[in-house]
Design a protein around this nucleic acid. Structure first.
Lengths: 341, 341
DNA sequence: TTGTAGGCGTTATCAC
DNA sequence: GTGATAACGCCTACAA
């Protein structure tokens, strides 16, 4: 009987409606607002759904209602040691409310981020999550006119338009100085991330520099040339600790660098913290397993994902909230004192 | 002027078509098969797209063409130390070809996996990726009639319908025994994963048992009661090494357990491998950072993601291939000999 | 509580 | 090479 197009071959609302002896809109209501459908029809529809193995077509639904149950997230990387926790918790909370996660990584490149955002917007996501406050001009334009909730995570820039869920990297840098200074150290160095593009790490460095200056101490920033973080760490240790006037403490831009540096030192016969205090950032999984274990700062990775998801669900009206949705969500980092500093 | 529905408020093909003075189908072709559109029109359309900031609506496109450019993946967990690499490489390859990744985690629960699969199928994904060969009956039914390429990763079950991209956990178990036996060890124990649901880990145990038996050695399986992997590892070390006839070598179900065990031993004054060889699985990021560094087996995490994506793209006709698409993709694990065994 | 009509934005199909 | 038409599967708006 004709059929000029093929379709998916799956059952549709119409099939279910016919089998249940109702109109298709009633089947639609059965899924969206079950309490509006009478008990009798509900049972008939449920049976038809069973029989036909009916699955609502989300693309069609999203198209018709102009609001797809999908949320998009761009993150620097998935396999790195810290962002995965954010993705995990974010995705879990969303799934629980029937939303699906669309994911892509930017590798700390604002161009790749823009590509991902453009691709995502084609899916008319219900909301969009980005990492940090730093984006390309193109991304800024896209999100400005996207007309959906935008959330920036892993950073805290109160003056920006998008919802903020994260923490201040500047504060983290200051906090590290504070701690080491309190331990009596004066010659405190900072090892920068060799990964260009990680702009938040530069904020941590700036916080370090600001606090050092305030304390009347001279900032001492080491910039590794090695790309591999473990190698870069080794390079830093060699340069900072094996000299006449060695650093008393070294703050690394992240735990990878710190671990690489510490390991190189240990294998060269050094002892920590005796030969220099080692301070990291990130509280990666291995940090407590090192000998000595690594003193570091734990960013609220999981919490960021949870809060971001919650705010989005509230903005979408899926979760109730009294009053305004908090625009600024400043979460706590935790300084974890261990053996290395 | 009526307008009974609102729509997204964004520009559509029709807007672009009107501005460019062509029909909307030509705009569609401009995106799908640019070489079919004449140079002149292409320029006009490009300009209109620019002016209007037009973004193709993927949901509408997917609906009309019955093939959305989306691929769904269910993985045990995102934040764990090993699967993230698979997700990362998988997503990267797909993105490069204009496909987006829909992601959810099962936490090693076949029920959660089924929920995710059902939710995903509503999006009419172009393909579906699962982890391991173990699923619920419901999932089996769903994938059997999904009518899209299905890929099972991180395992290798030649007899199964879905495309296989992974490795044999049984083989991994045998390989560990082989290695330790070759080092002269006879009293070789295996520490099971305390995480129920990780069925592939049981396959590794079974491989261990089979090989031990073949060698005329008696299998010795320890089942931790502690849930936390580090605690479970400690428990295992205490039980296996601090006795009259201690184990000479211990194979752990994964690197987390091994690290926990080794660390507990070290802090108690033990030395490795002198007081017992320690063997892991997974080659987690920290494994090379431990002192002693951990001997383990590296699963082809990244490669699995790449190959899975490639096979899917080939099945979808996005990537050329001569002949049949290989159904069985057995990838190599790498035994990484380090200091602990 | 249930149904009718028609549109959401795109693309398959057929015609020129 | 380009266009007219209808259909993909669902949901909003309105009516009963």
């Amino acid at each position: 009987m004709s059929g000029k197009r093929k379709g998916l071959g799956r059952a549709t609302v119409h099939d279910v409606a016919k089998l249940a002896g109702v109109s298709s809109i009633t089947v639609s209501r059965y899924f969206k607002q079950p309490d509006v459908v009478s008990e009798a029809l509900r049972l008939r529809i449920a049976e038809a759904v069973q029989t036909l193995d009916y699955l609502p077509n989300q693309a069609a639904g999203g198209l018709a209602s102009t609001r797809g149950r999908i949320v998009a997230m761009v993150i620097p990387n998935i396999s790195g040691p810290i962002f995965a926790n954010t993705i995990q918790s974010f995705s879990d909370v969303l799934n629980r409310h029937g939303y699906q996660l669309l994911l892509a990584s930017s590798y700390f490149s604002v161009e790749k981020e823009e590509d991902a955002v453009r691709a995502f917007l084609g899916w008319s996501p219900a909301a969009l999550v980005l990492t940090s406050q730093y984006h390309s001009a193109g991304t800024e334009r896209l999100i400005a006119k996207a007309g959906i909730p935008i959330v920036e995570t892993w950073d805290y820039a109160p003056e920006r338009q998008p919802l903020q869920v994260g923490f201040s990297h500047l504060e983290v840098g200051r906090q590290a100085v504070e701690y080491l200074h309190g331990k009596g150290h004066r010659r405190i160095a900072f090892v920068q991330n060799s990964l260009v593009g990680d702009l938040s790490a530069l904020d941590r460095r700036d916080g370090y520099m600001a606090r050092m200056t305030e304390q009347g101490l001279e900032p001492w920033v080491f910039v590794p040339t090695e790309a591999d973080p473990f190698e870069a760490g080794r390079q830093a240790i060699n340069s900072l600790l094996q000299r006449k006037q060695p650093a008393e403490a070294v703050i690394f831009a992240n735990d990878n660098l710190a671990a690489g540096g510490m390991l190189a030192g240990l294998r060269a016969g050094m002892r920590f913290p005796q030969d220099g205090a080692i301070f990291g950032f990130g509280n990666y999984a291995f940090s407590e397993l090192l000998l000595p274990s690594l003193t570091t700062i734990r960013p609220p990775a999981r919490e960021i994902g949870e809060v971001a998801a919650l705010r989005i669900l509230q903005a979408l009206g899926e979760v109730e909230i009294e009053g305004e949705i908090p625009h600024l969500n400043l979460l706590d980092c935790e300084l974890i004192q261990r053996e290395s500093a």
